[in-house]
């Protein structure tokens, strides 16, 4: 069974005819054509598919596409504008928080959510750990990701 849904992706309105069984991840990757978000487990264990739905971090592999009807989706593709990396992306590059890069799109969105949530608050390294605990990285040991998040919090 299919259903027509409407949402915005990175500010652009899209109307799509989707199989009601599809995940938001499948629709983003295979219909919208945005392959930034990755599938690492398909069951919400690893966070490689993380996107923001109405600014809330979700695992798009277990978020039904039809639930996104009427909502606003942000993916990693929307974070670099006019050739300028977001402060989170820039910090990931400079701190070496990227290795194989497969978890990176999900992590960038998790850190973006963290930055927006903790903008005017004090936070500790353990806050960073806890707020990124749904995202698994096997390459970095997380240390450089903490450093990248810390740096991004100091920039606009």
């Amino acid at each position: 069974m299919n259903k027509i849904i409407t949402f915005t992706v990175n500010g652009k309105k899209r109307e799509l005819n989707v199989d009601v069984r599809s995940s938001l991840l499948d629709v983003l990757r295979e219909i919208v054509g945005m392959t930034g978000a990755k599938e690492g487990c398909g069951v919400g264990e690893c966070g490689a598919c993380s996107v923001l739905v109405d600014d809330l971090l979700v695992d798009s592999c277990i978020y039904m596409a039809v639930w996104a009807d009427g909502k606003s989706i942000r993916t990693v593709e929307g974070e670099c504008r006019d050739g300028k990396l977001s402060s989170v992306q820039k910090s990931y590059v400079e701190k070496g928080a990227v290795q194989c890069g497969f978890c990176t799109p999900g992590f960038v969105m998790a850190s973006t959510a963290f930055k927006e949530r903790f903008k005017d608050k004090t936070f500790t390294r353990d806050d960073i750990r806890r707020e990124h605990a749904g995202n698994i990285c096997r390459c970095t040991g997380y240390e450089s990701i903490i450093e990248a998040v810390e740096q991004s919090m100091e920039e606009d």
């Binding site: 295979e30 990693v76 590059v93 890069g101 799109p105 960038v108």
Partner: peptide, 23 residues
């Protein structure tokens, strides 16, 4: 030196095997 592939990876532009999927 910054990784030569870092920008491709933080922007989601880096293409992995499954990203070559076509209808």
């Amino acid at each position: 030196v910054d990784r030569v592939d870092a920008i491709a990876k933080v922007t989601g532009k880096a293409r992995y095997t499954d990203d070559f999927f076509r209808p």
